Amino acid sequence: MKILAIAGSNSEVSMNKQLVAYASTIFENAEVEVIDLNPYEMPIYKHERELKNGIPQEAKDFAAKIDAADLLLISLPEHNGTYSTAFKNVFDWVSRIKDRTVWNEIPMLLMSAAPGVRGGTGVLEAAVKRFPFHGGNIVETFSLPFFNDNFDRTVQKISNEEKDNELKEKIKKISAIETILEK
């Protein structure tokens, strides 16, 4: 199984990148690529820019990574109740590629981590509502609140046993679905 683990952030110390990287280690017998958005930085989407210059190569490269995956792990930071600007811009550009949906119906585990009590639930709610219109096949969601208290940065693992078990159960369910699909 090929897993593309996407941190929806351009932060160099992204807690969502740490979460998605950790989640990817729980899957057995998987080929995993963990990416953040820094290599996919493009001009802010503008219709006139698209008409003049076309779709940037970075958007096409991002879409190709999605298309090569069997499973998407996406962890989104919450910025003012929704996606980070870096993520939204990549999402917007990829959505403009002719004859494709952004997520291409590839099964996904959608996650968010945040330092506060809500754990990024605002961005998860926004994504759960929006992604299906763009080919999002959301199998599970997971939220990690109080990231600084519930994630051990030294060993790169969820330290809250209850939250760690919750994530592992969701991954177990996804792994079972993926095993059935492979047959």
Rank of each mutant, 00 (worst) to 15 (best):
R153L: 12
P132C: 13
H134F: 15
V123H: 02
E161K: 11
E105D: 14
E78P: 13
H134Q: 11
T121Y: 06
K172R: 11
A64M: 00
N150W: 08
E166H: 12
V155P: 08
F147C: 13
V32F: 01
K65S: 14
S75P: 02
A113H: 09
K2T: 10
E182D: 14
G8A: 11
Q18N: 12
I74R: 02
N38D: 03
F146R: 02
T121E: 15
F142W: 06
E28T: 08
T121A: 14
F27D: 05
D164P: 09
L4A: 08
N10H: 06
N148R: 13
I26C: 15
A7L: 07
I44Y: 05
T121V: 02
V20Q: 09
S175P: 06
R130Y: 11
V128Q: 03
I106S: 04
L181G: 02
G122E: 08
T85H: 05
L144E: 14
G116T: 00
M108Q: 09
G81R: 10
K183L: 11
T101V: 03
G120Q: 01
D152Q: 09
I106Y: 04
R153E: 00
S84Y: 09
E169W: 11
N160K: 13
K52R: 13
S24Y: 04
F151R: 08
E50S: 05
K163N: 08
S159R: 00
N104W: 10
Q18C: 06
F87S: 00
A30G: 13
I55D: 04
A23I: 06
P132M: 13
I44R: 01
F131S: 03
N16A: 12
E162P: 00
K17Y: 13
E58D: 14
F142L: 15
P107K: 04
E169M: 07
G119N: 05
A114H: 01
E125Y: 13
V34D: 00
E105Y: 13
P43E: 01
K65Y: 01
P43M: 07
V102R: 10
K183F: 11
R100T: 06
V117D: 01
V102A: 05
L109I: 09
E169D: 14
S112V: 10
N148C: 08
L76I: 06
I158K: 01
S11Y: 03
L110D: 09
L76C: 07
S9F: 04
I26A: 10
E58Q: 15
A86L: 02
E161I: 03
D67H: 12
L51P: 00
G120I: 07
Y45T: 14
K172E: 06
L51H: 04
E105T: 06
I44V: 08
N38A: 12
K88I: 00
V123L: 05
A63K: 14
A59W: 04
I26R: 04
E125V: 08
I171S: 04
T141M: 15
E125P: 01
K173D: 03
L167H: 02
E41V: 07
M42H: 01
K168G: 09
D149V: 06
F142V: 08
S9L: 06
D70G: 15
E12A: 13
